[in-house]
Design a protein around this nucleic acid. Structure first.
Lengths: 247, 247
DNA sequence: GAGTGGTCTAGACCACCAA
DNA sequence: TGGTGGTCTAGACCACTCA
């Protein structure tokens, strides 16, 4: 009801709206509201925590800016999801040079349960010997192979993940992570570089050996900045570009 | 003083705070406040336009989010600048693989006043025959050549730009654009791909021919989404990565 | 019409900065 | 000490959605 709340709750100073944002995030982590569901209205939350609607609004604004929730006027505020068609390719920055829309297809090559070796340790930072699941697949734009994806997740967080389940989900991994395992991905970091295709890679992509590829290393995070998935993508960029917007 | 303002000002509906944001942007374009200078306080602007401080705040929040202005508590709101050391590399996403900080150096190779040809038309969208200035330079990180930059601006917007002026500004082009020509860059779009170094490029970067390079095509914009500069960067990415954050 | 988020106001107090 | 931006409140009205 007043600023005492601020002082009594926490030893270090934090604006009220950030505290509200934190508790909402914690309730999201706890799985209180699943992706796609609505969270309580601003008024309800304000009443529940004894703050004004404006303060709750500012907290939710921040969550909306980070794409953790989505506001819909007249309907409510909803937990973000990768399930919907339009948000499925949220993290895919590769677009056709000519700007055309394309049919995206998946071809699963491998899905194995293995342990972290030195090479994987370097990529992920996971301890050697940790049980993981590795996925290899080919992404095709309009029938032509464009990306080789090598994906790693921890086995303990995605129990029972196998080739069948991936196929059942049409290769929409992020959608599957949140639906089957309650792990929504909220942000990712990528490191890009240019490399030369190896013989094996060139064969998969039907290229000449020596062809240049865009190498994309990605770490994807769930709530609370917890890394949950690592990817290594190798992209053919003669017909596609990686788009980025700087501010 | 009331919502009549909204109705009397514009035929199409636009929230008040967006209208305030627009007029502030127009005053920035008009050059009323230069980069680095402060704009009037929230209270002053609110009084001037007959709206509440909260509405002005929301307009300035939006401008601050777009890095067009910077807020400094206790001091005021300032027009963003590329002059300061920390903001000079705002658009540079290339970082050392090991995360170390590095000394950045510039070597100017060429600076010519030419006309747009077919190739440049394709890159920039400028009409063939338009007078432009082309700049070629080499960027070095800790003494080793990492980027070949090819830069194009329109001659009419940057009259008298030449090699001497670039050297006087130590190659800080964005700082020079705003200081000498009143053209602050506020955002940029980049398209990335992987290519193979030509013989000429390999020589400049002291590489073997056939080495892979990260190709970065950039269009940089000033206020009002007006494109003002085009770049083509070719980067050696064995010791450096292009970092990106996805939300 | 009831409920949601979106905008706007007016006024309070706080944290920070400079003179 | 006075001025700036930062936080917070309480209450109003608007626009949108859905039953």
């Amino acid at each position: 009801m007043n600023n005492m709340t601020k002082l009594s709750n926490t030893p270090v100073f934090k604006p009220l709206y950030e505290q509200i944002k934190s508790v909402i995030t914690e309730r999201l982590i706890a799985g209180e509201w699943k992706p796609g569901e609505s969270i309580p209205s601003e008024m309800d939350l304000a009443a529940h925590y004894g703050v004004s609607q404006g303060t709750v609004r500012k907290a939710i604004d921040a969550l909306a800016k980070e794409n953790i929730v989505v506001r819909r006027q007249g309907k409510g505020t909803f937990v973000s999801t990768h399930k919907e068609e339009k948000s499925k390719l949220r993290f895919l920055r590769l677009t056709a040079v000519d700007g055309s829309k394309e049919l995206l297809e998946n071809e699963l090559l491998e899905c194995n349960r293995i342990k972290v070796n030195a090479e994987i340790e370097k990529l992920t930072g996971l301890k050697i010997g940790t049980a993981i699941i590795e996925i290899k697949r080919l992404l095709k734009f309009s029938q032509s192979s464009v990306i080789i994806d090598y994906i790693i997740v921890q086995a303990k967080s995605f129990k029972g993940l196998n080739a069948t389940k991936i196929k059942e989900n049409n290769g929409s991994l992020y959608s599957m992570y949140e639906t089957l395992y309650g792990v929504p991905m909220v942000r990712a970091e990528e490191k890009l570089s240019a490399v030369i295709a190896t013989k094996e890679q060139a064969d998969l992509l039907k290229l000449e050996p020596g062809f240049p590829l865009l190498r994309i290393e990605r770490t994807a995070y769930t709530y609370g900045d917890k890394p949950m998935e690592w990817r290594l993508g190798l992209c053919v960029t003669d017909e596609h570009h990686y788009m980025n917007f700087l501010e």
